[in-house]
Design a protein around this nucleic acid. Structure first.
Ligand SMILES: [Mn+2]
Ligand SMILES: [Mn+2]
Ligand SMILES: [Mn+2]
Ligand SMILES: [Mn+2]
Lengths: 225, 225
DNA sequence: AAAAATATTTAGACTAGTCTAAATATTAAT
DNA sequence: ATTAATATTTAGACTAGTCTAAATATTTTT
């Protein structure tokens, strides 16, 4: 399986490429610069690294075009995402962390190498399907369950739904959501849309309604009721 | 606290020095070669590293004599041991690993950096005092509880006690102990000592008695009944 | 289609950590 | 007190990963 010799750095590059691949069309390449952006590093460093990863057959690299993950690279990336999200569930469900706190710790824990550990953690958590931010947890084969698609900003007046995920993950954003009780599982109904700034007046169950900015509406995933 | 920039490698060196310090007299030095042995590396590499650690005031280094941990170095080492042992408890108590399996995984987990995580893990495990091998878990200040001292090999005929720890940690040894039911908490009584090879005939509660080799007797810690 | 702007790669340097081989210091043996 | 054996340090080289600056390729604008 994924028991090859691979560094945490290499894993992080593959994860970044995977994540960037999701945002572009199937047959296009992930550019050097976009990877540098995502990894907070320099394009020159990326070129070095993708050459090494290509050497290890984890991706294909076409100079001046970009890279594409191979099956192996995809497997390593989804394994990493699986571990990241399982650990986030652990941190929230078992240790009582908030959803705003867990990401940096999961960034470390995802690199722990032990298939048996992942397997037992998964069982201990009772095979969760989604992480604390509503992101689906891929299975051992790297298959994802359906991910939330509809944003709060897609709803029309009088439509209602349940918050099932967040698009942005910054702690500040998540803490703000907590303070407004806009957490996963909360039912929301649109009572009004303010045209000039695209903000919405939202009604929560057993709560008074209030204004929600466009920025927030574009970062909340909804399961329509 | 321990939030300085410190690499896992540096942490491992400090842990090795700490462990070696325990085995020698208070005022003597830990030698370069002994560190190289412990770390499975070369003496030349150790010299390089201890110079860097001395630079960071984590230990004092006297060329051709050896090193001694500073207060800071000692704190980093005991923090690491604390984390290692807490994770071992987690792996055994919560995830169902055997005591023979946990060490290599804890070697990775001990390097996760988050004081809050350690604190919450400690609480989640209900503040355990000993790890699955009977080794005491130091507190936040690095203070240790009493560690087991008496070995099974110290007992005389007809004396009895409870197994509270193991001196050796190899998986093979631990698995062998499991197969003989010589696990922590087991009550043992010496019924006979074979002089020529220093092996012992041991009686367990509700079990028939059997021969235990000298090597094993020297690696089992006993709390006398 | 040339010029300008942008993206990407190459070249060379740096740090952390490691190694081997050679030099030097310390300790033990005669 | 020399000599021999052992321990330790230095010197020089190597890899992974990173950076800046310069060179080159690609894309966009005019
Ligand atoms: Mn995360
Ligand atoms: Mn998440
Ligand atoms: Mn251990
Ligand atoms: Mn242990």
């Amino acid at each position: 399986m994924s028991q090859k010799k691979i560094s945490s750095t290499e894993e992080n590059y593959l994860k970044a490429v995977y994540s960037l691949s999701e945002k572009i069309s199937e047959n296009s390449y992930v550019s050097t610069n976009s990877i540098a952006d995502e990894m907070q590093t320099k394009a020159a460093s990326v070129t070095d690294m993708v050459k090494r990863l290509a050497e290890k057959t984890m991706l294909t690299y076409v100079p001046y075009k970009g890279v594409r993950l191979s099956g192996l690279g995809k497997k390593i990336a989804t394994d990493l995402i699986r571990k990241h999200r399982l650990w986030e569930v652990f941190l929230v469900e078992k240790l009582g962390f908030t959803w705003a706190e867990v990401h940096p710790i999961a960034e470390q824990l995802e690199h722990i190498k032990s298939d048996e550990l992942v397997h037992r953690l998964d069982a201990f958590l009772e095979y969760p399907e989604y992480d604390p931010h509503g992101d689906p947890i891929p299975d051992k084969e790297g298959k994802f369950r359906a991910k939330p698609e509809i944003l709060l900003s897609d709803l029309k007046i009088s439509e209602a739904g349940i918050i099932v995920g967040v698009k942005m993950h910054s702690p500040q954003f998540l803490e703000y959501l907590d303070s407004k009780k806009l957490v996963l599982g909360t039912k929301v109904e649109i009572t009004e849309i303010i045209e000039f700034d695209q903000s919405m007046i939202v009604k929560l169950e057993n709560e008074s309604s209030f204004n929600v900015s466009s920025k927030i509406c574009k970062n909340l995933y909804i399961q329509m009721a």
